[in-house]
Amino acid sequence: MLSRTADHLYWMARYMERAENIARLLDVNYRLSLMPQPADQMEKAWAATLRIMGLDELYWEKYDEITPENVFDLLIFDRENLSSVWHCLRAARENAHAVRGTITSELWETTNGTWLKMRDFSPAALTEIEVSEFFEWVKYRSHLSRGVTIGTMLQDEAWRFTRIGTFLERADNTSRILDVKYQLLLPAGETEGGAADYYQWSALLRSVSAFEVYRKVYRDLITPARVAELLLLRSDMPRSLARCMQEVYNNLQKVANNRSAETERRAGEMDASLRFGRVDDIMRGGLHNYLVKVLARVQDISNRIANDFLVPVSA
């Protein structure tokens, strides 16, 4: 298939997935902010979210203080912020538009419909409905896109690049969501394992639809190490890093060309390290340090995919 087409498909999927994960990240923080706590604790939580998305500089250029409304403004509606939900849904739609002949009409209509509806939302409208409802909407539109992709697209190269985009983005986002927790300090007076801590971890689990899964898998108290294991190493958990890299690696093998061997090897290496990794080792070295390295490797693989497949190179 055309390199340009593959590029559009890959980014269409990435942006849709990114919109979903921003909604998830904001949702977890919003839930956390509802719990009784000192004001500065809440600010720290929002600041950590901004930092993890690399948006703290842009934020402070635009606003003087941290409030949920400002954060929502920047992360949901801002036209200059390339990582706002608004921008992601628009970019997903623009990419789909460029390849509307390659994707199924159902997928095009879904993506286009999501964007048309997004244009109706405004900060004012969000005060009328619960903001959580909006996050729910974004999540469900993303579910719908993914479902339509799986349910209607021929499983050819176009599908593979769409899948690679989805899982690479999710690998990045899951790592970031997990890292947010690590940027937070426990509220003064709380000890690790206390009520506040429990609330934070469970909110985090809920944000990646893993709360019930956790209960089912561990049938035990929520501990940081188990949460990390679930979100990083359990390949049967659909949003875990292990699952994402497994999908990336498998799909990469199917589209391999004569330039892509090294990219495949790196994805495979990462897949193997997650498959055979132990959570104790990760925790011993520090979760945050580990996640920083993960993000760098995901970035490296996505750069290499762009070079090997997507950016047109003259013969």
Binding site: M1, L2, S3, R4, A6, E157, F161, V255, N257, N258, F309, L310, P312, V313, S314, A315
Partner: peptide, 16 residues
């Protein structure tokens, strides 16, 4: 997406 080499037109694809 297209280029001409030796008077033949080609398109750039993920497989060359």
């Amino acid at each position: 997406d297209l280029f001409v080499d030796d008077d033949q037109v080609f398109m750039r694809t993920t497989r060359g």
